[in-house]
């Protein structure tokens, strides 16, 4: 499934993607520095699978999601969607492709317009893109809403009349109404209560099975990501430090950051005593990242070499990529 061989149905491929935000300063406000939000990231997502993207806040997870959909322009690199280079498309071509790639946002309170009734929120883009003939519009809307657990009479209500979980369902229905192939889920459950989280995660999984959707699931909640993903990417300070199938990454995390991250997950069992690796300090500023390996300031297995030379991404075992000097040369230790 995660073999990177030929004949595998790759929907999204990202090659050496970079996104820098300039820092303006000095006289005449020219750019003096750049925040390297995403720095040389490569991965691919197979059709019908979910890639989980984890990392601390500010590590560039959301920027990847947005650049992937071309909601922000890239600085360098390529994004292939169904074999087409997204960032090379013209305005009209991109517009044609838009319904195929959708996004679900984190905060269901601020991502829905308070002035539009729910039917309009979900249906606006359907009409705009002529997804279904005019006659079938209402039926399509009803069907989408019922799949997402909403009632047809909800169409005339406004977002403030709904609870957080239901709003997130509206957000999902809005994305789903356009018959997309690829959905970026940007922390879709972090603002919700535990029992509602389970409902939304189950809904996303059901939809994936039914419509063969492909997800990029961005979250900082590792247990949720583990539950929903097929492949996992771990990010640190704009870099993808580890990438591979779920089984490989969770059973044998290789990068010291991944190891520490996994050890920090609280387990709801009082008998399990954690062998916790507590990372010192906090994530450095992406405007002024450390030299060499970006993680060396907090790494417990830091070597001299890490402070000077930046490690490149290497395939340690089939389908398992790591960027760390510990695994240079001899493969697996």
């Amino acid at each position: 499934m995660t073999d990177r061989g030929k004949g595998v149905d790759t929907l999204v491929e990202v090659r050496n993607l970079k996104k820098y935000y300039p820092i303006k300063g000095g006289f005449l406000q020219h750019s003096v520095n750049a925040v390297k939000a995403v720095d040389d990231v490569s991965f691919c997502i197979e059709r019908g699978t979910t890639m989980g993207l984890v990392g601390e806040s500010g590590c560039g997870k959301s920027t990847i999601g947005r650049t992937l959909l071309r909601l922000t322009e890239k600085t360098a690199g390529t994004v292939l969607f169904n074999g087409q280079d997204l960032h090379a498309l013209g305005r009209e071509e991109l517009r044609q492709l838009r319904p195929k790639m959708q996004i679900i946002f984190q905060d269901p309170y601020s991502s829905l317009s308070p002035r539009l009734p729910v039917g309009e929120i979900i249906g606006e883009a359907v009409r705009e893109h002529h997804i279904v003939p005019e006659k079938e519009y209402e039926a399509h809307l009803d069907q989408t809403m019922s799949i997402c657990g909403l009632m047809p009479y909800h169409k005339d209500r406004y977002p403030h009349e709904f609870s957080g979980g239901q709003r997130q369902r509206i957000g999902i229905a809005r994305a789903l109404a356009l018959n997309p192939e690829f959905i970026v889920c940007d922390e879709p459950v972090s603002a919700l209560d535990v029992s509602i989280q389970a409902q939304i995660i189950n809904l996303l999984k059901d939809l994936q099975k039914e419509f063969r959707l492909t997800y990029l699931f961005i979250s900082h909640d590792l247990s949720v990501v583990e539950h929903i993903s097929d492949t996992i990417g771990v990010m640190y300070l704009g870099k993808l430090v580890e990438f591979g199938s779920k089984a490989l990454v969770f059973n044998r995390p290789l990068h010291p950051y991944t190891v520490a991250l996994f050890s920090a997950i609280p387990v709801p069992d009082p008998d399990v005593k954690m062998n916790r690796i507590i990372l010192e300090g906090s994530i450095p500023s992406p405007a002024n990242p450390p030299n060499g390996c970006k993680f060396h300031t907090r790494c417990n297995r830091c070597m001299e070499r890490c402070k000077i030379e930046e490690p490149s991404q290497r395939e340690i075992e089939p389908g398992h990529f790591v960027a760390c000097h510990l695994y240079d040369g001899e493969g697996l230790p």
């Binding site: 601390e56 900082h220 520490a260 991250l261 920090a264 916790r276 507590i278 990372l279 906090s282």
Partner: peptide, 8 residues
């Protein structure tokens, strides 16, 4: 807070 900071 993030997981690693939460642990701290």
């Amino acid at each position: 807070l993030d997981v690693t900071i939460q642990a701290q």
